[in-house]
């Protein structure tokens, strides 16, 4: 009887998209402390720890792959990996193409960073943002001049070398950079709240995987694991559930 059930479950799984054995998690690997490639050459960061924990709780065997941000959604849709876990904010626009799990980071503010001591009108100046991000969308509609870059690192570099007046990005990403800039950079305007929280992106046809991951995320919220993890990686500014 047990065997029969197992066989039925397996065949059900086999016809669906999610194979119980391996789930490939796609991330950018260039957005510390969310996700980055550490000096050992491995994916590291908040999302690495989170992803591994989710997989453990959902009894999934997970492997990590990196993909550049710009093509991260198309490669999910064409099944090169099974989930995006890359600091991706939930937006209505993205939700039309892919599906999202429950959020694992609550809506958190974005911040403008410019050279310390400068006076920049963020509504009119030249603002750097990463391509295809909610921040890029915000800058485009704010009246400022948007310059887009492929990687988060380049947006900050653009401010340092004067190419842009300021950069708009997740505050959690910018905070350590400002702190370690030796006074060169500073938050120069009020924070803005754009978009929803951060969640894993899944293919719309992958309902089963979504259910499993949601269960794991909800459990982590309930027992406080997620909050502990957030504090570990985002320090004082850590958003909490």
């Amino acid at each position: 009887m047990k065997k029969l059930l197992l066989a039925a479950a397996l065949s059900a799984l086999a016809t669906g998209a999610a194979w119980a054995d391996t789930v490939r998690l796609g991330t950018e690997g260039a957005y510390p402390p969310y996700n980055f490639i550490n000096d050992k050459g491995e994916v590291d960061g908040f999302e690495r720890e989170l992803g591994d924990e989710i997989c453990k709780r959902a009894a999934l065997d997970c492997t990590w792959v990196t993909n550049e941000w710009d093509s991260i959604i198309p490669n999910l849709v064409s099944s090169n990996y099974d989930a995006i876990i890359a600091g991706m904010s939930v937006t209505a626009e993205r939700d039309e193409v892919i599906d999202f799990t429950n959020e694992y980071i609550p809506p958190s503010p974005s911040g403008y960073v410019g050279l310390a001591g400068g006076s920049v009108d963020v509504a009119k100046g030249i603002i750097a943002a990463q391509i295809n991000t909610i921040q890029a969308g915000h800058v485009a509609s704010s009246g400022a001049t948007l310059v887009e870059f492929a990687s988060p690192d380049e947006t900050v570099a653009a401010v340092k070398n004067g190419e842009a007046d300021a950069v708009l990005a997740d505050k959690d990403f910018l905070a350590p950079i400002v702190a370690e800039s030796g006074g060169m950079l500073a938050f120069i305007a009020d924070d803005v709240s754009i978009g929803g929280g951060v969640a894993l992106g899944l293919r719309e046809s992958d309902g089963e995987l979504k259910a499993k991951m949601n269960t794991a995320i909800d459990a982590m919220k309930a027992d406080g694991t997620l909050n502990t993890m957030l504090v570990k990686w985002f320090k004082d500014a850590a958003p909490q559930w």
């Binding site: 690997g29 260039a30 510390p32 402390p33 980055f36 490639i37 550490n38 000096d39 960061g45 792959v65 990196t66 993909n67 550049e68 093509s71 490669n75 090169n80 990687s151 690192d153 380049e154 900050v156 570099a157 350590p176 950079i177 370690e180």
Partner: peptide
């Protein structure tokens, strides 16, 4: 090559050369 998911020397130079905060072992 990077567009095809193969990490080439330019990708690594960009990745390694970028600013590294204290979250990395070698900042």
């Amino acid at each position: 090559l990077f567009l095809l998911g193969v990490k080439d020397i330019v990708y690594w130079a960009k990745e390694l050369g970028g600013m590294k905060t204290q979250v990395y072992t070698y900042a």
